[in-house]
């Protein structure tokens, strides 16, 4: 547990010291929110959640890429790959909660006649999904530019595709549209259930995939034997 906490602490320190990145991270979802604030209040909630997901995935992608250089050394120093993955997830999930909180407060103040609990759920799921999604991209695409382009494609598709089509369910943030509709348009509980199932499934699957990718990349090679 100590090792996980030390990794989480150092990952947080590294992120906090990138002040410009932090400011952009904080303002990025606001731009999404304001873009639809004038014409469609409900849509601005959906957009801010998508903006949060995009910002967090990008932060996770870059944090994961930056850690690639030191992780083999940490592995040799006695860390297991799970220590490294869980520590980094913990740090980024914490950042996600801190990033989401002011936007939830903004919605509380600015929006009325919506289901606030459901909006909180969308934000929580967004944090849970976005972080392992970004880390997974950094694990399978070693160059940041490639990861960024994939991220751009996924979020772009998420914004332009019809949420009612079956194909959009394969996108990681589909749940935000579904639960968002439940929260804003007061639809039946089916939207909530479908969104919750999809969001939780993606959160679990992506987290497992990140752990597997790290275990493979940082595995002890078969030719090396410790006596």
């Amino acid at each position: 547990m100590t090792r996980i906490l030390v990794v989480a602490e150092t990952a947080l320190r590294e992120l906090v010291r990138r002040r410009t990145v932090l400011i952009i991270l904080l303002l990025f979802p606001l731009a999404f929110y304001l873009s639809r604030r004038g014409d469609h209040l409900g849509q601005s909630i959906r957009f801010v959640c998508l903006g949060l997901g995009w910002a967090l995935s990008t932060a996770a992608l870059f944090a994961g890429s930056a850690a690639r250089g030191i992780e083999p050394r940490l592995r040799l120093s006695g860390y297991g790959s799970l220590h490294l993955v869980l520590g980094r997830l913990l740090a980024l999930w914490t950042v996600g909660v801190l990033l989401s909180a002011p936007y939830f407060l903004l919605i509380l103040v600015d929006q009325h006649d919506v289901r606030y609990g459901a909006i909180a759920l969308v934000m929580a799921l967004t944090v849970l999904v976005a972080v392992p999604f970004g880390l997974l991209l950094s694990a399978v695409l070693p160059r940041e530019l490639e990861g960024t382009l994939v991220l751009l494609t996924v979020v772009g598709l998420q914004m332009v595709m019809d949420p009612a089509s079956t194909a959009t369910r394969a996108l990681p943030f589909w749940f935000s549209r579904e639960i968002g509709t439940y929260a804003i348009d007061h639809t039946d509980g089916g939207y909530l259930t479908r969104g919750l199932v999809q969001g939780l499934s993606f959160a679990v699957a992506l987290t497992l995939l990140v752990a597997v990718a790290a275990a493979v990349r940082l595995r002890q090679r078969r030719h090396l034997r410790f006596a």
Binding site: T2, R3, V6, V7, T10, R13, E14, R17, R18, A66, A67, G69, I70, R73, L74, S77, G78, Y79
Partner: peptide, 24 residues
């Protein structure tokens, strides 16, 4: 390593704590 092996945004003491924790 010949290069790399350190974290850009951590100071030396934080490096010692990070690697040290792995070593117990």
């Amino acid at each position: 390593p010949q290069d790399g092996g350190t974290a850009e945004f951590l100071n030396p003491d934080e490096h010692f704590v990070l690697i040290g924790a792995g070593r117990g």
